[in-house]
Amino acid sequence: MATPLPSNHRRWVLLLVAAQMLFILAVAAAGYATTVYGRVVTLRTLPVDPRDLLYGDYVRLNYTISQVPIALWQEISLPRRRQAVYVVLRPAGEMYEAVRVFAQEPMEVPADQIVLRGWIADRYRRSLHIRYNLERYYVPEGKGKELERKGRRHTMLVRVSIAPWGQARITEAQVQP
């Protein structure tokens, strides 16, 4: 048997549970805020295998900006695996492409460009493989079937909201016509 609980125990429990519930609501609010205040960029993926959808509720996405030439690396020190990086994106037509990669958050970028955070997944001789944690798209109900019906490998266009404070989220994903 544990020691008897102190008299103000109930108040502390209430406080703690309320704090936990508020925290979860705050996570949800962060999701909404990212959409409302974020700037939308469109990214193109490499072809997605529709069979992936059969195995779970998400698809693995591989973006054109997932693989960047090592020449974009702006630092003197060599990039390390699992290191956090800041990728500067610039619009090229409708889509955004990576133009520079920093180890520290760049102070200022031109108005048409935007910073997306990521991690170095692998380092090759000529290129860097960057992971953005945007690689898993949880397919909304019904959408998966539609993708499967098309029955061939296709690229996808993914709209990503990037909030001014750096938070990013996928807001929409569609098959490129």
């Binding site: 549970v17 979860i24 949800a28 999701g31 909404y32 990212t34 944690n133 949880y138 996928i170």
Partner: peptide, 21 residues
């Protein structure tokens, strides 16, 4: 309850496709 709190944090951020930086 404690495990549910952890699960809720993960599930809610997954629900909004939020990325944990």
């Amino acid at each position: 309850g404690l495990i549910l709190f952890g699960a809720a944090i993960i599930l809610v951020s997954q629900m909004y496709q939020l990325i944990g930086y």
